[in-house]
Every structure is written in C-alpha cells, then in structure tokens.
Amino acid sequence: MEAIRKSAREKMKGYCRVCPVCNGKACAGEVPGMGGLGTGSAFHANLEALDSVRFNMKLVHGVKAPTTDTELLGLSLAMPLLAAPIGGVSFNMGGGDVSEGAYIDAIVAGCKEKGLIGCTGDGVPEVIHASGNDAIKKAGGHGIPFIKPWEEKEFFDKLEKAEATGATVFGVDIDAAGLVTLAKMGRPVTPMTVSDLEKVMKATSMKFILKGVMTVHDALCAKEAGAEAIVVSNHGGRVLDSTPGTAEVLPEIAEAVGAEMTVLVDGGIRSGGDILKMLALGAHGVMIGRPFAIAAVGGLQQGVETYIETLRTQLIQAMVLTGTDDVNRVESGILR
C-alpha cells in the first residue's frame, strides 16, 4: 500500500496530498479537488464522528474465523463494502497519465475480482458516466451506476443507458444537488420530491438506491417512494458546510426505517475497524470513496485489489477482537 500511495501522491500532486490520514484538514475548501466545501467542517465531522466511537475489546470467546460474506440487494459480497461512486479524474484528482476510463475500469474490475461491487459516477464531462457504463458492461453488469438528479430528459436518457449495462441495481446521488463543480460548468442539479422518486421507480426494473440521506425525514420519504436502499451520506462534505458526521445520524435513521430497507453509509470510513463500527451503529453495509480513488490512481486494478485485501484483514482482526462472528449479526454492544 505504501508504494501505491507514493505513486498516487506523485500523480495527484496539486489535487490530493495523499495524507497519512485522509481527514480533509489539508484540502479544506478545495472543490473541485478532493476536499470538503467551505471550511471543510462536514468532511472533518465524518472522521470525528467515527473517531469518537470506541470498541469494547473482548477476548474470552470462541471466534477465530469470522464470516465476512453477506448479501445486499441480491448481490453476493465478500464483505459488506462497495466502492463509492467518484469520477472526474481530470479536475478532481489530477491523475497524471491515468484516464477516466482506466481509473473506473480499475475500480469496477478490482472490486469484481475481490468479490465486491464498484459503483460508477456521473457528471460533466460526458466521459465520466460513459466510462462508468463501459466498465460495468466489460464486467458483465457487475457494478452499480449512479445518476445525478438532472432535469427530466437527461435523467431518463441516462437511466436507459445505465439499464443497458446489465446492472441490476442503480443509484441516484441526490446529495449532489447544489454541487459546486456542476454549477460552475452550467449544469446544476436539483432536489427531488417523493413523486419524482416514484416516477424513477416506475421507469426501471433495477433496484433503486437513494444516496444522500442525512435525516429521518428523507429516509422515510425514500421508503415511501419504494426505494430498496438508502445511503446515509453528506457527499463527503462536498455540498454543504456544517453538516454532522454520518456516524452521528446513522443510528436514528437505521432505527426509523427498520429492517424494511437496506441501509448503507459512507463518510470518513478508512479502515476495517471503521466498517465494523458502522455495522454496529445500524448499517447493513458501507461505501468508501476517496481511499479507493487513491488506490486506483496509484496502482490501477492492482492498487484497488491490494486496498481491498488490507480492509478485509483489518475487518477480520476487529471482529476477532470484539467477539463478532458474522458481519450479518453485529451487536451494538461491541461499542462502548
């Protein structure tokens, strides 16, 4: 991983410092780029909320080889983890000689090789979603395309293209509404009503994830519209300053929707231990964004696979040291 991170640091110079801890301190306000909006407080809050959660270490038990396999939205996964949808190599990451296509191919193919799912992004320029769709097609539909909440014609055109990839699940990152990078390019996106979400559901047979839920209100609206899953997310702190960390709001949201929806979460997750914390707080699975981008830019598919192996080793270690035998049965009592 150190060699991969060193390569990424050289290629992403001026866009990402590839800090020892990716916490948004050095890149505050750098949007476009990899930072958080404004003061960066929403990005910081994600890390701080997770850091404030502590494990109860437990070692008098018989857990030696915990189970990390799970199933989410009909997809079999080697662990409850997805690579979050991040695109825009040229203006967000620098990327050196790494093209948008090579980057997203590394994410999708690397995840598939390791039994996970890579999500693909959307945005401006067109190459972002086109490369993502191509990557999923090459992987035999093994990926989750995300679409931004565009105006109606563009949205449904992109939904049709997403369906043509062979994917069985798609997402809308409603948390992109108001994204500075898109507004600067003259392509603003907007919030959606329950009626809008219902219309989306009726237009496709794919399962639907709504990403960008930070309140019980929005979670219940997604449930009312019929979405199969939500992602508790503040878009990595890139759209609204001064929001809470996702780990702060996750428990109340998970409790509100109960077992009737799949609850995913992202924001500040940096290790296998962080994955376990989020599961204990009520999530069924997690998404990780920036560290996957760094791994892909720094080492392409090998970088992605190496990062996944690192996370799985850390997750198993955390499970053993908390007496957790199965990711599908994580008790809140492992947290202090």
Results as ranks from 00 to 15, higher is better:
A247I: 07
L73H: 12
G143S: 07
K6V: 03
D326K: 11
I136A: 10
I107E: 03
A254D: 15
V327C: 14
D173W: 13
G272T: 11
H44G: 11
K13A: 09
K202R: 09
D274Y: 14
A45K: 03
A183M: 04
S52D: 15
G272S: 14
E71S: 13
A177T: 12
R290H: 14
G273S: 15
R312T: 03
P20I: 00
A8E: 06
G298M: 08
L37S: 04
T246K: 10
D241Y: 07
Q302E: 07
G88M: 10
I4V: 12
M319R: 04
I294L: 10
P244C: 14
E126A: 05
A45W: 00
K137M: 05
R336P: 07
V231P: 01
V124T: 09
D97W: 00
D69C: 15
Q301Y: 05
E305W: 06
A3S: 10
E260R: 05
A109G: 01
E71C: 07
T262K: 14
G245I: 02
E48F: 13
G14N: 06
V216M: 02
Y103W: 02
R17H: 13
V21K: 03
L73C: 13
K64S: 15
I4W: 07
G95P: 00
S131E: 09
D326V: 03
I128S: 08
G303I: 11
M12Y: 04
I269V: 15
G289L: 02
E260V: 02
G110Y: 10
K148L: 12
G141R: 11
I107C: 08
L47H: 10
A225P: 14
V304N: 13
A222I: 04
T306F: 01
K184I: 00
G88P: 03
V216S: 05
E252V: 09
P149G: 06
L315T: 02
P66D: 05
A293Q: 12
G285Q: 09
T310N: 10
K25H: 06
R187W: 05
I4T: 06
V263C: 14
G33I: 05
S271M: 10
S90P: 02
Q302W: 10
E260D: 15
C221R: 12
A102K: 00
D241L: 07
E228I: 09
I209H: 12
I288V: 15
A45R: 01
A139E: 07
K211V: 14
C19L: 11
P145K: 08
A45S: 07
E228P: 13
L197F: 11
A254T: 03
G236M: 01
H129A: 00
V172S: 06
Q301E: 13
L50W: 03
M34T: 09
E160I: 01
Q301I: 05
M319N: 11
F91T: 01
G285K: 09
K6G: 02
M278K: 15
G323L: 08
P149K: 03
V330D: 13
M93V: 00
L300R: 05
L77S: 08
G333Y: 12
G115Q: 00
V63N: 15
G87H: 00
V53Y: 11
Q314C: 02
D326I: 06
L335D: 15
P66N: 15
A26N: 09
G87I: 05
S7K: 15
P145M: 02
P145V: 02
